[in-house]
Simulated scan of single mutants.
Amino acid sequence: MKQSIVYGFAGLLTLTSGAVLAQSSDDDAHVYIGGSYGGFKASGGEFDDEKDLIEVSFGGFFNPYLGLEASGTYFGEYGGDLATAEAEGYGMALIGRVPLSDTWGLYAKGGQFFWDASIDTPFGSAEADGDDPFFAAGTDVELSSHLSMIIEYSRYQIDTEIEDLEGVEDTDLDTVKVGVRLEF
């Protein structure tokens, strides 16, 4: 079920990419690929040098205000003395953007994050997966006619409810990332 949703969204994004490219450049319609690097904290923790994330994305804007994005995110290891986890996943989101000038805008996005996690506690280890909502807000700045820089805050709500392990709670991952988008 989860794979069919991901494949369906990827197919929709691919089909709509052609429609985006077919529109004139005056409408600011485009597709992009991007990459981001950042840090994250888990449920009330702190940002630190050892909690890095990497994200790749593919998306498109139909006009200056509305777009779709598919992304893959890898979180490094996080946790404390009693439990650690490592998570990665794929997100699908709808983007709303407000252009503030010809080269700068603010955006918000929300969607679903399909994740897998490995969890280790003193009571044992387990694998978990699921799909939970995520949302983000950010800014983009045009560096050239085909290259933009983004700065983004995101929150991923990963609900790791594992009956076999005690002491594992649901986790919110707050991220701050900087990235670039190559626009076509």
Rank of each mutant, 00 (worst) to 15 (best):
Q3K: 15
S4V: 14
V6R: 07
G8W: 00
A10S: 05
A10F: 03
L13Y: 00
T16W: 00
A22I: 09
Q23M: 06
Q23C: 04
S25C: 11
D26P: 11
D26Q: 15
D28A: 15
A29H: 05
I33D: 03
I33N: 04
G34I: 01
G35A: 14
S36D: 03
Y37C: 05
F40P: 00
F40H: 04
K41Q: 08
G45K: 11
G45R: 08
D48C: 09
D49M: 12
D52K: 14
I54T: 15
V56E: 11
F58S: 10
F58V: 09
G59P: 13
L66D: 02
L66N: 12
L68R: 00
E69N: 03
S71I: 02
Y74A: 15
G76Q: 06
Y78N: 10
G79D: 07
G80N: 05
G80A: 10
Y90M: 15
G91Y: 00
M92D: 10
M92N: 11
L94Q: 07
I95T: 04
G96A: 09
G96M: 02
R97Q: 04
V98F: 14
G105Y: 04
K109T: 11
A126T: 06
A137G: 09
G138V: 00
T139F: 03
T139V: 00
D140K: 04
D140M: 05
V141M: 15
V141L: 14
E142C: 11
E142P: 10
I151K: 13
E152Q: 08
E152K: 02
I158H: 09
D164T: 13
L165P: 03
D170W: 12
L173Y: 03
L173W: 04
L173G: 03
L173Q: 06
D174T: 06
D174I: 10
V176M: 09
V180S: 00
V180R: 01
R181V: 07
F184I: 11
